[in-house]
Design a protein around this nucleic acid. Structure first.
Length: 592
RNA sequence: GCGCCCGUAGCUCAGUAGGAUAGAGCGUUGGUUUCCUAAACCAAAGGCCGCAGGUUCGAAUCCUGCCGGGCGUACCA
C-alpha cells in the first residue's frame, strides 16, 4: 500500500492544480513540526499563492473545499499564514497497522514502480595493505545504500573497485621473489604474508628495499614490465598476493556485515587492457590532446592554481595510465556491459574534483549519455579527539580490524557489568553485535557529509541515539515474548485473531503513528543517500516504544487491550529488526 | 588566488524544496522502581543558528560580502 504521505501529496497537489488552473503544483506535505498541528502539514499553499499573487489562506480554503481525504484524515484545518494541517483518522491508522502486520516481508512498504539498474562503487581497499579507518565509511555507507535501494526494488550491482594494479606492485612481487629465494635457501620465512599484521611489514620491507637497494629496485622495475607483458611467473606472484590479501578484507566484510563478495570485485586490473583504447578513443574524437608530454582532456570550467585550464590526465608522459583512465573505462563498462541507469560512487569528499572531471569527460565522450545518472556520494573524515583525522599515537592509520576489536572488547566489558549472569558464549555474541553495531551506527547517524569525532564511550552509551539503545529496545520486546509463556499468553494465537485494535492511550497512538511511517524514512534515506534518516527514524521509534513500555503494561493488560499492545510490540520489534539488520547491516540480540 | 565542504546549546550532533515557538543525546539540576530488562522513563535550566547586509508574508536553510576551519587545485589514488 502507498504511504499516507504520498497519497496526501498526490491528492492535494491535484486539487491545487485544478484550483490554480496550472500543472505542476506541489503540496509539499511534511510531518508536522509540532504534534499540536496534527500529523502532517501542507507547506505548498503559500508559495503557490505567491506565484498566483493571491491570499494564501483564501487559496487554502479553496483547496480544502475541493479536497476529499475523508478516508485518511479528519477534516483538514487551515492555520497560520496558510498551512493545512492534517490529522490521521484512527480507523486509517488501524487499517494500516493491520496491513503492516500482515506483511511479514516488506512491512507494508511497496516496491517502487520504475526499478533501475544501479551500480554502486564502494569500499575499494588496496591490495597488500590492511584496511584502515579510512575505508570504513565508504564500505558501510555504500553497503547501506545498496541494501536500501535493493529493498525498494532496484537492481543493484555492487562493484568493489580494489587497488590491485600499479607500479607499486613491482616491488611487492619482487619481494615475493626475493623471499622465495631465501626460503629455498632454507630460511624459515613466510613468502607471502598470511596474517593481517604481516602485510604491513611486508609492504614496508619492500618499500625500504626499493629505496635503499639498487639491485632490488632494478628487479622491481623488471617485475612491473613482466607483469604488464604477461610474464607468467610475475603474474603468478601477483595473483597469489591478491588472493591472499583478498581473504583479509572478506573477513572484515563479514565482521562488518557488509554484503560484498568475490564476484563483486572489478579492480583496477580488470580494466588494464581497456585503457589504451580509452585514450585512443578520446584522441580520435579530438577530446584529448598532448600537453607537457601527457595526454590530457580539458573540460570547460576547470582551472588550476594559476588560473589556467586544468586537465584530466589520462596518460602520463612516461606512457602509464592513471586512475582517471581506469574510472573512464569503468564507466564505459558499467554503462555498456552492466547496463547501468545510475552509477553511484561512494568515496570521500576530497575526490569531488576528480569525479567532476571524469563525469564531464564521460559525458563528452558519449560513454554516459544524459539519461545515465552519475552520482558522487561524498562523506567527511573520521576524526580523533584532537579534531584531526584519526591516527594512532605513532601517527599511523588506525587499522580497521584493531578498531573493531577494541569496540567488541569494550562492549564485552559493559555486558559483563550489566548482565553478569549470561554465559560466556552469550556475552561474546552480544558484545560482537553491540561493539560492531555501535561503530557502524555512530557512523550512520552522522550526516555523512560532515566529519565526525570518533569516540568509543559515546557510541557505546546506552542513552541517546546509539546502537546499544536500539538493541536494548529490541531485547526488551524479545523479553516480553519470553515472559509471555510463563504468563499463559500465546502471542501467536492472540495476534492471529486480531481484526480490530483498541488504541486509546496517547503512548499507543504515538507509537502506532510512528510505526506506519517507516517507509517515509526509507524513501528519504534512499533519495538523498543518507543513512542518518534511517537512524533518526529508528531512534524516534525506539523512544516512542520506551514511553509506551513504561506507561502501558502488555502482558498484564486487560483482555480488550492486550492484543493491540502485543501487536504494537511485535511491529516495533519487526521494524527495528528490519531497519537494523536488513538496511543497516547491524545485528540485533535476543537479550542484553 | 580559484573551487568545493563546513561554522547550530558548555560538549557531540540532527534539522528531508524557504514554513509555525530551532531539536536530540551527553553533561548539569531535580524526580520516577513492591509492576513485562532502570542499559529505561519524566521534568528543568541551557541558543543574536560565525558576523553584516539583501531577497519576502516568512531565512539556520536562498543571494552578496566578510571572519574562522577543513579539503582540493597537471602526470598518487
Amino acid at each position: 500500500m502507498k504511504l499516507a504521505i504520498d497519497i496526501l501529496e498526490e491528492r492535494i497537489s491535484d486539487v491545487m492544480a485544478s484550483v490554480a488552473g496550472r500543472e505542476g503544483c506541489a503540496a509539499i506535505v511534511r510531518p508536522t513540526t509540532d504534534a499540536k498541528f496534527g500529523d502532517y502539514q501542507v507547506n505548498g499553499i503559500m508559495s503557490l499563492a505567491k506565484e498566483l499573487k493571491t491570499n494564501p489562506r483564501k487559496l487554502a480554503e479553496q483547496v480544502v473545499e475541493k479536497l476529499d481525504l475523508s478516508d485518511i484524515c479528519d477534516k483538514p484545518e487551515i492555520a497560520g499564514p496558510g498551512f493545512i494541517n492534517l490529522r490521521l483518522k484512527t480507523e486509517y491508522l488501524t487499517a494500516r497497522l493491520l496491513e503492516v502486520n500482515a506483511d511479514a516481508v516488506r512491512l507494508g512498504i511497496e516496491e517502487i514502480s520504475k526499478p533501475e539498474t544501479v551500480v554502486v562503487d564502494f569500499s575499494g581497499p588496496n591490495i597488500a595493505k590492511q584496511m584502515h579507518v579510512g575505508h570504513l565509511r565508504s564500505t558501510i555507507i555504500g553497503d547501506c545504500i545498496c541494501r536500501t535501494l535493493e529493498f525498494l526494488g532496484h537492481k543493484v550491482i555492487r562493484q568493489n573497485h580494489i587497488g590491485d594494479w600499479g607500479t607499486q606492485f613491482g616491488m611487492l612481487i619482487a619481494n615475493i621473489e626475493r623471499r622465495s629465494h631465501q626460503a629455498l635457501q632454507g630460511k624459515t620465512i613466510g613468502v607471502i604474508p598470511v596474517h593481517l599484521a604481516e602485510f604491513e611489514d611486508f609492504y614496508r620491507e619492500a618499500k625500504q628495499l626499493f629505496d635503499t637497494d639498487e639491485n632490488f629496485a632494478e628487479r622491481s622495475r623488471a617485475a612491473v614490465v613482466g607483469l604488464h607483458s604477461g610474464d607468467q611467473a610475475w603474474i603468478g606472484r601477483w595473483r597469489a598476493l591478491v588472493t591472499q590479501s583478498e581473504k583479509h578484507y572478506q573477513y572484515l566484510y563479514q565482521c562488518l556485515g557488509v554484503k560484498l563478495i568475490h564476484d563483486d570485485i572489478r579492480g583496477e586490473s580488470f580494466y588494464k587492457d581497456k585503457l589504451a583504447d580509452i585514450v585512443k578513443a578520446l584522441q580520435k574524437d579530438g577530446l584529448a590532446e598532448e600537453s607537457d608530454g601527457a595526454i590530457c582532456v580539458f573540460s570547460e570550467g576547470f582551472k588550476n592554481k594559476e588560473g589556467e585550464r586544468l586537465p584530466l590526465i589520462v596518460q602520463k608522459s612516461d606512457g602509464a595510465y592513471l586512475y582517471a583512465t581506469t574510472d573512464l573505462a569503468a564507466i564505459r563498462y558499467r554503462v555498456g556491459e552492466l547496463k547501468a541507469d545510475r552509477i553511484i560512487y561512494v568515496t570521500d569528499a576530497r575526490q569531488s574534483l576528480h569525479f567532476e572531471m571524469v563525469f564531464a569527460v564521460a559525458r563528452k565522450a558519449g560513454w554516459a549519455k544524459d539519461n545515465i545518472d552519475l552520482v558522487h556520494v561524498t562523506f567527511g573524515s573520521v576524526l580523533g579527539e584532537n579534531g584531526k583525522p584519526l591516527k594512532t599515537r605513532s601517527g599511523e592509520n588506525v587499522k580497521l580490524k584493531e578498531l573493531l576489536d577494541e569496540a567488541v572488547q569494550r562492549a564485552n566489558a559493559v555486558v559483563k557489568e550489566k548482565n553478569p549472569e549470561l554465559s560466556e558464549e552469550e556475552k561474546e555474541i552480544i558484545a560482537k553485535a553491540v561493539g560492531i553495531g555501535a561503530v557502524k551506527y555512530a557512523d550512520y547517524s552522522n550526516n555523512r557529509t560532515s566529519d565526525y569525532v570518533f569516540n568509543f564511550d559515546r557510541m557505546l552509551a546506552m542513552d541517546g541515539n546509539t546502537a546499544p539503545y536500539m538493541q536494548y529496545a529490541y531485547a526488551r520486546i524479545k523479553s516480553i515474548e519470553r515472559k509471555s509463556e510463563s504468563k499463559d499468553v500465546n502471542i501467536e494465537t492472540e495476534l492471529a485473531g486480531v481484526k480490530e485494535l483498541n488504541l486509546s492511550e496517547p503512548a499507543e497512538v504515538d507509537l502506532a503513528k510512528c510505526l506506519i511511517r517507516y517507509g517515509e524514512a526509507i524513501e528519504a534515506a534512499a533519495s538523498d543517500y543518507r543513512p542518518n534518516y534511517l537512524t533518526s527514524y529508528l531512534y524516534e521509534l525506539a523512544q516512542k516504544f520506551s514511553v509506551f513500555y513504561t506507561n502501558c503494561p502488555v502482558l498484564k493488560a486487560e483482555s480488550d487491550k492486550r492484543p493491540t499492545r502485543l501487536l504494537l510490540c511485535d511491529l516495533t520489534r519487526r521494524t527495528i529488526k528490519h531497519g537494523l539488520s536488513k538496511l543497516l547491516g547491524i545485528e540485533v540480540v535476543e537479550q542484553m
